[in-house]
Amino acid sequence: MARTSTAARPSKQTIPTQDKISIALTVNNVERTLQVSPWTTLLDALRDHLELTGTKKGCDHGQCGACTVLVEGRRIISCLTLAVMKDGAKVTTIEGLAANGALHPLQQAFIDHDAFQCGYCTPGQICSAAGLLAEGKAKTVNEIRELMSGNICRCGAYPNIVAAIQQAMGQTGEKS
């Protein structure tokens, strides 16, 4: 934190490779044990180690939201998260939202409202929206748009995404 230079380490210096670290993650209600390097992101752990490729790598810099997953029920950016730091955590990805053979209300709403074109951002959009519903802070369209602004849709399906989330908010309200 108090380091005075960002490039303190000479560029050619190599750091002895740390042995892989064993971590446990409960991913979509299944306990998984995996061996990761310290620099393995949660996104790469999900995609490359656990072969859960629903979560997408967009920018890999926390600017697009395609890699959004839920950790302990909160939406986070998995490309900027080190897997080793989430040892013991409960992770939910797009593959874990459907339950008992039924689509999650958000998944159904995205279909109903045609809330995607290419679909690349969709897993992140839906996981982010699931986090948004759990937070309960968004009530108006403006609030939905603001609190979903971390998820970029290059195709520009935003109006339909907002409509889908509104539908899911209604469904959630009826059930609870």
Partner: peptide, 16 residues
Amino acid sequence: GTNLIDLMKDDVERPS
């Protein structure tokens, strides 16, 4: 880690 990991990916921060 939201800023540090990003900077490490760009080789701007190089912590040992």
